[in-house]
Amino acid sequence: MSVDRDTVRRIAKLARLAVPEERLDQLAGELNGIFTWVEMLNEVDVTGVPAMTSVVAQKLKWRVDEVNDGGQAQALMANAPAHEETFFVVPKVVE
């Protein structure tokens, strides 16, 4: 499983990161180094081993159905790079 320029480009697109063309090769090299290294995991037989879903013995917490949050549109807008009234504003999204 070798990572090439195209793979890096595709992954960067998925991750919404603008990666300049001239960095693709270098990144591919770095990622290959890492993926070659992690390939040692293939030595281990994991047949029948469950994937970890909770690190410690703890049951999921549930909350009661109450309205106790919201009503803070102004506070939400305080950090917004662009907003109008209490809408966040982004460049037009074409459907």
Binding site: M1, L41, N42, V44, V46, P50, M52
Partner: peptide
């Protein structure tokens, strides 16, 4: 190949 296997390894490490 990667994530699912790693989470199984994690079970073994624990």
């Amino acid at each position: 190949a990667y994530y699912a296997r790693a989470q199984k390894l994690r079970t073994l490490i624990a």
